[in-house]
Design a protein around this nucleic acid. Sequence first.
DNA 1: CCTAGAACCTGCGAGC
DNA 2: TGCTCGCAGGTTCTAG
Length: 293
Amino acid sequence: MPELPEVEVVRRGLTRWVAHRTVAAVEVLHPRAVRRHLAGGENFAQRLAGHRLGAPARRGKYLWLPLEDTDEAVLAHLGMSGQLLVQPHEAPTEKHLRIRVRFEDALGTELRFVDQRTFGGLSLHDTTPDGLPDVIAHIARDPLDPLFDEEAFHRALRRKRTTVKRALLDQSLISGVGNIYADEALWRSRLHYERPTATLTRPRTTELLGHVRDVMNAALAVGGTSFDSLYVNVNGESGYFDRSLDAYGREDLPCRRCGTPMRRRPWMNRSSYFCPKCQPAPRVTGAPAPKSP
DNA sequence: CCTAGAACCTGCGAGC
DNA sequence: TGCTCGCAGGTTCTAG
């Protein structure tokens, strides 16, 4: 499941293999893969052809390739199963190939968007003066962004009446964190996923953010090794970081800190993994805090 | 306005 | 063997 580190690995791959190449033709093989491009697949293909792609950028789980001669960018989101692959023309067509991008040069490779579950997609958008595609203006900076506003994040946590894992997954507060790294950072912080955000002190927020950054950087360091010359490895499922996970997927296995069996709880149509001893449930779950003095 | 929960989608593995 | 069902989950939409 691609979260920030996996998307960053893809961005680096695109920087090396796709940046500064000129699009010759685009083939859209599944309409859902361009559903964010409201004018449709044909329009997407036509407007991309003939343009040179710039250096890929990323915010959270979104990445985009600016067009070098206009104020537009190709926006990509991998959803849960999306892959951006650089393949030789002659490579067999993947079962779930959704979009193919051919280039004018003679390098012999093309860019493929492959996506089994079709939650991801590509689209073309105008960019704001700071280079951000306009449709992701609501996405917060991610914790690896030097301009991430930690103080504003903490104030938002204090203001909201929600729980800490919900907040970590709220891309308008902090971007790039998904279910896996949320559970990892919470385990490292010894915080239960249902801890009300309004109870977090400033040092606790700082500690939590530190763990979010640490676990993402650790995954990123490992992810960098898993890609070879013709293949932009985006497959979150193959899981090079799997062996380093302390919480996610470890139901009934001993906590790596205290040995207590880890637990899994259904949570928002997915799962939360945690240590019942290191991460005790908050005493007042869901009790509304007094709003005015 | 704010928050919680459902819907979207497909393949895989477990259980019968 | 072949079927059903639960599960995986990021984002967006809707209901309350």
